[in-house]
């Protein structure tokens, strides 16, 4: 269920971020539904392929989108059930996202462009450091709630859980927010709107894609953002009434709140120097590690 909501609303979230940024800049901004329009338009266009590229370049967007969609099936939205859930599903989610990234990186290298190689090189560096942060943050939530599937983990994050494990959940939230920003190439880790290829990370990797391929990539990127936003929304909106529509609308509100937060961060923060990024990622892992230790310490309490 949650996956369907995510797929429908994912491109809208990107619109919300852009609107939030426009508001801060004093502009009207693009329509909220702009990303839907973009995708529809791209699907109607033809493609141009570089003569250097091979089947890897063509497979990249397809496999990436498929992996992201599979991963989205395991993401709960607050109290709304995930399509499938089993102990350890978040590990599969992390590695499916890894598969998506692996294919994007290879497609970028397939073009033989120096810029795309550079983006790919940065992407794999940040990804290697983000993965521990993501898993540690989810484990810290799991160790506070005592369950190991995403659905059960988030199903019990209610006001009571926040009262009992406030510190743990707060640190997990901050770590997850950092993971969300870096995984979705947002400020302060990457700038989706930069104009210079030298400074891009994710955008430069998909420079050569066009037409339906680019539509797949755009849709995949917005679903990925929605997935992380759903996890964060599950944390910051502790509404678990059991009534499906109450939970769903609360979680949806949380989803948009996360998008607004991302937009606000983008408006207020400068981008980090690229050398500082690894440090922030390590700090996010460390924060999640501290959260786990605190959860353990509370468990050991006499």
């Amino acid at each position: 269920m949650a996956a369907i909501i995510l797929l429908i609303f994912a491109p809208l979230l990107a619109g919300v971020i852009n609107r939030a940024k426009a508001f801060f800049a004093g502009r009207t901004g693009q329509p909220l539904l702009q990303v839907y329009f973009d995708i529809a338009k791209l699907l109607r266009k033809g493609v141009v392929y570089s003569r250097t590229t091979t089947w890897v370049f063509r497979a990249g967007p397809i496999v990436s989108l498929a992996a992201v969609l599979c991963a989205a099936c395991m993401i709960p939205l607050g109290g709304v059930r995930a399509l499938m859930s089993f102990p350890g599903d978040f590990i599969l989610v992390a590695y499916l996202l890894g598969l998506a990234r692996f294919m994007t990186v290879l497609a970028a290298l397939d073009t033989g462009s120096a810029f795309e190689g550079m983006g790919a090189s940065r992407e794999v560096q940040f990804a290697a450091l983000t993965e521990p942060a993501l898993l540690l943050a989810l484990i810290s939530i799991g160790s506070a709630t005592g369950d190991w599937s995403l659905h059960e983990m988030f199903a019990v994050v209610n006001a009571h859980a926040w009262a009992a494990h406030g510190a743990v959940l707060a640190m997990a939230t901050v770590a997850l927010l950092a993971v969300l920003l870096v995984e979705n190439s947002r400020v302060p880790f990457d700038d989706p709107n930069t104009h210079l290829e030298l400074t891009m990370i994710h955008e430069v990797m998909v420079l050569d894609h066009s037409g339906p391929d680019l539509a797949f990539i755009e849709f995949g990127a917005s679903v990925k953002f929605a997935m992380f936003a759903a996890l964060l929304s599950g944390l910051i909106v502790p509404v678990r009434t059991g009534l499906a529509w109450v939970d769903a609308s609360a979680a949806l509100a949380g989803l948009f709140a996360v998008a607004v937060v991302a937009g606000v961060i983008e408006s207020c923060m400068a981008r980090l120097r690229i050398l500082r990024v690894p440090q922030m990622l390590v700090a996010a892992s460390v924060l999640a590690g501290v959260a786990i230790l605190v959860a353990l310490a509370q468990g050991v309490a006499p």
């Binding site: 690894p278 440090q279 390590v282 700090a283 892992s285 460390v286 590690g289 501290v290 230790l293 353990l296 310490a297 050991v300």
Partner: peptide
């Protein structure tokens, strides 16, 4: 970055020793 990682290890060690 290394300092932060050392910090995490130190935290684990001190948690162990502390308990």
């Amino acid at each position: 970055s290394t300092s932060l990682l050392v910090g995490l290890a130190a935290l684990a060690v001190s948690a162990y020793l502390g308990w």
